[in-house]
Design a protein around this nucleic acid. Structure first.
Lengths: 232, 232
DNA sequence: CGCTCTATTGATAAACCTCAAATACAGTGG
DNA sequence: CCACTGTATTTGAGGTTTATCAATAGAGCG
């Protein structure tokens, strides 16, 4: 059974701090508080007042959103080096999503005054942030387009590919997605049900496109999946 | 027949320039080029290299996105005072969407160097931009949630309400949406087909929730629509 | 070995799309 | 003022996709 590789990472290489010197980053990191999370710990809840923003140093977070009836979608997985809640904090809003650790996770925390001061002192940070947010918005917009215009199996293919690119590691059999993914998770990430996901993955396993075990996916034929995701 | 009211507006009041003096804004606006668009003119195309960003001064833009098979969704309508393509330009990306004028529209244009200089000189602009982008991302995320978890008629209700809040004006009969909206437009904005929209609106018209004519919608009972959009 | 959580699979039903055809509407030019 | 043309809209019938429900099997853990 493949366990997740420990990714070597340092905050200095995070996109947020691009353009700053190592010393500057070290100072900023010192100003932040550290938090350690266990799997299933909630970092923040949708609806809570947004007091802090977070940089993931190790581990992974799952960002989800609930509607009034309690149905859930997964908006994104946050991997090391990525920031979350950066902007909510600036607007004095409630967090629009919930963040839950899905493995042992270390985060660095800044509160709003720290963020504001940071950005005023180093305008590059605000500009970097803009770039990061743009990538997020592009990601959601693409997924919005997909969910509006494509069939479920295409969307499931795109979901797997997206997760593979974000958190894939090579193995002899293919590319392993280093995130524990239940059928329900994939469904919440693709806008469908676990039953449909199960049927679809079974079919792909027969075709030799993927291998899957309990909460584990290996993409054995990425090219076929890409092809399928684009043409149906 | 109701025509769109001419909304009185000045760039100085745009959220982008919050925190700047009137004189500063006047200088910035002077640095930008002006463009005048007729209905159906394309301001920029999805896939074109993003050279400029735009502030709408008068009129309305429709932002759309196409998938590989040519199916379209409407992501957003841009109304006076709003910026578009601000971030794409920073990343040297291609525009991720297409912007089309749906009425006579005036925009102010800045290119990338101007934007960068602007933000370096006035960090508040970058921070304001972050706030604006956050609202956009929140909007798309909400719509993503809706399209993943809700039924078409609920989504159509939410679409009408969203458009009503963004571009509604009071009339004796109810709140008129000041955007020409065909059934197809509403479908593209809700992730469904024009047929379903037509049937749904007919039903609501019988219930007295809306009145509709050719490309015109008046919401006569917003409360009922809200109620319906939340409970199904 | 039993408990719990996850995954599979079949049968059924509901929601929604697609296609086809008819109707309504606005604008144009005679 | 009217006929004509090009859209927009409505409505019905039929089919497909996908969700839902139910029951079973499998995996991991103590």
């Amino acid at each position: 059974m493949a366990t997740n590789p420990q990714i070597s990472y340092s905050p200095h290489r995070s996109e947020v701090f691009k353009g700053l010197t190592g010393e500057q980053v070290a100072n900023l990191v010192k100003e932040g508080r550290r938090i350690k999370l266990e799997p299933k710990n909630i970092l923040f809840h949708q609806g809570d007042p947004a007091k802090n923003c977070f940089l993931v140093n190790r581990g992974r977070l799952k960002l989800t959103k609930l509607n009034e009836q309690g149905k859930e979608v997964i908006l994104r997985y946050i991997v090391p080096g990525e920031l979350t809640a950066a902007t909510a904090v600036l607007k004095n809003w409630a967090y629009p999503v919930t963040a839950e650790a899905i493995e042992e996770t270390d985060v660095i925390v800044w509160d709003k005054p720290a963020m504001m001061q940071l950005m005023r002192r180093y305008p590059d940070i605000a500009i970097n942030l803009l770039g990061i947010i743009l990538e997020r918005i592009d990601d959601v917009q693409n997924r919005y387009l997909e969910v509006c215009t494509e069939h479920v199996d295409q969307r499931i293919a795109r979901s797997l590919l997206r997760l593979m690119r974000r958190a894939g590691s090579k193995t002899p059999e293919g590319i392993h997605i280093d995130i524990p993914l239940s059928r329900q998770n994939i469904a919440d990430y693709s806008g469908t049900t676990l039953y449909t996901v199960s049927r679809t993955l079974s079919a792909w396993e027969k075709k030799g496109w993927i291998q899957s075990g309990r909460e584990q996916i290996i993409v054995t034929d990425p090219h076929a999946l890409v092809q399928f995701s684009e043409t149906g």
